[in-house]
Every structure is written in C-alpha cells, then in structure tokens.
C-alpha cells in the first residue's frame, strides 16, 4: 500500500482518478480502524492533511463553510455555528469521545456515511449542501440527496468532498441534536436532529431528521410542513413523531431491535422540541 500526501486538491484528484483502488484519508478515526481490521485494502492512501483549502471554518455571506478536514473538536468549539448551524455543532459535540473528536473530520464522517453517525442527520436538518470537487470542477449536493444507503453516498469515485456549506438562514432558528445512546460515547440508538424557529409562540421554521433509523437520515417534508406554522402542541408533535416512526426502517442490532428504535422516536422528538422551546 502506497501513502501519498499531495499539497493541493487538483493533485489529490489526479491521483484519485488514476487509481480505482485509492482511498482518501482525512482524520483516520474510522478508516485506520478499518485498515487494522482488514476490512479495506486500498492500493493507495491519499492523505489530505496538507491541503490547506480543505481545512477550517469560514463565514461568507449566506452560509458557513466547513472544510472537509475540519475536526469534530474544531466544529464543536466554534461559536460562530449558531442559529440554523447550531444543530451541526451540537452533533459534533456528541461524537464518541474527545480523543476521537480531535482526530475525526466532518469530511471523513460524511463520506463514510454510517447511518448511525451524528453528522448525517444534523446536516439534513440544517439543510446543508455538500461540495464535491472533481477534475472537471465542483458541484453542490443537498444533504438530502447525498446520503444514499449504508456506507454509500452520491459522491462519484473520482470526486473528493471539499466542504460542507451550512446556510445561515433562518438566523433566529435554534438547533438540537438529541442523541439517545446506550452510554456516553456509543453510536446513537436513535438521534433526532431538529432546527426550529419560533416567533411569538408559533413555529415559523422546522426541519427534522432522524438518525440511526434506516440506511440514510429519515427526513419528511410533510413533517416539516406539519410543524411549521403550528403551535407545536403535544398532539402535533405526536403526529409528526408517528409519521417519522412509520418512515423509519432501522436494523436490529446490539443497540436495540428495529421495533424498539422506531417506537422511541415520538418520545424523543417531543423531548427535542421541549428542549428548544
């Protein structure tokens, strides 16, 4: 296995497109563990850490740009991630343990597309857009269309995720990533990512996504519509929770049965709303 650390994104893209078996390495929190367990055997590892344009968080106009190699810890500690973007920061805070947050990156996490991870739901709730860089240019993919299936994204084989763009609007919104897990640091059994804006008692914006509930975050436009404009009464939340529960398609595993995971969604949604109200 070869290891290369290109200094620029075009250079990295060139190596990637020349070698079908090459994999990009960002923080290594997951990929290195998979290498150790012989689960993947890439021919080449392309280390991304020297590529400056992939690193860091910047605010420009109507969105916050989070470079793909920004660590979970950097995101968790950045107080510019407020309003609509707060849900992303809240998710970053709850990923695994601090050692892993210092190592893992948002780009690595979303490209791995583990449906039990925290970022996918949070990015969908924040209506984020993922920027994919290819040799022929860049394209923007809404988070809703990025996560396709277990460990599968809409990124092409010769593309590299360059950044995650989180809209600033709605400015007055608040976000919560409610993670329910067996213990602190475990993957979520179910997570609720919620962005809400409330104006004089009524909900003026709502976007909710459920993680660990299927091959990709569960997000229903009709649920957002149901909540938006409502007074967020218990009955409304119950209906919303019911719809999300019906749409969820989780797996049975050590964290709980599929049925258990589905059934706890309404209660957790109510709790997430209560915490934001």
């Amino acid at each position: 296995m070869k290891y290369i650390e290109p200094a620029s994104l075009p250079e990295a893209l060139e190596i990637l497109s020349a070698d079908d078996e090459a994999r990009c390495l960002a923080g290594g929190a997951t990929l290195v563990a998979m290498l150790n367990a012989d689960l993947v055997e890439p021919s080449t590892l392309i280390g991304l850490r020297r590529i400056d344009e992939l690193a860091g968080i910047s605010v420009s106009g109507d969105h916050i740009r989070i470079g793909a190699t920004t660590t979970h810890a950097q995101i968790a500690g950045d107080d510019r991630l407020t309003g609509n973007a707060a849900v992303v920061r809240d998710a970053a805070r709850q990923i695994a343990h601090s050692a892993i947050r210092n190592m893992g990156t948002i780009g690595g996490a979303v490209c791995h597309a583990d449906p039990n991870a925290d970022f996918p739901g949070a990015l969908v709730a924040a209506n984020a857009v993922l920027e994919a860089a290819g040799q022929s240019g860049r394209r923007q993919i809404p988070a809703d269309e990025f996560f396709l299936d277990y460990l599968e994204t809409s990124l092409e084989e010769d593309e590299i995720l360059s950044a995650v763009m989180v809209p600033v609007e709605p400015v007055g919104a608040r976000g919560r990533h409610l993670k329910f897990s067996r213990t602190h640091g475990d993957y979520a059994t179910i997570s609720i990512s919620l962005v809400l804006a409330i104006n004089s008692g009524a909900c003026s914006h709502a976007r909710v996504a459920v993680g660990s509930a299927g091959p990709a975050p569960v997000h229903l436009a009709e649920v957002d519509a149901l909540l938006t404009g409502s007074d967020l009464s218990g009955e409304t939340i119950k209906q919303a929770g019911q719809k999300l529960m019906e749409a969820a398609d989780p797996v049975d595993d050590v964290r709980g049965s599929a049925e258990y995971r589905r059934m706890i969604i309404p209660g957790l949604l109510q709790r997430a709303v209560d915490e934001l109200r």
Partner: peptide, 28 residues
Amino acid sequence: LFEWMGFDEDAQPVTTTFADYLLVAADN
C-alpha cells in the same frame, strides 16, 4: 446495565469490539 457477550444461534460471537460490547467508562 451494559456488558453483554452476544452469540448468535450458530454460537458465533457477535460482540467482538468495544463498539458493540459496552464497558463502563469513567463518565458512566
């Protein structure tokens, strides 16, 4: 509350990492 050494019906161990087998950490 946590530790479960799981085996399936073929007696294959199904909890073979600490992501599946939970230990009590300091924060628990």
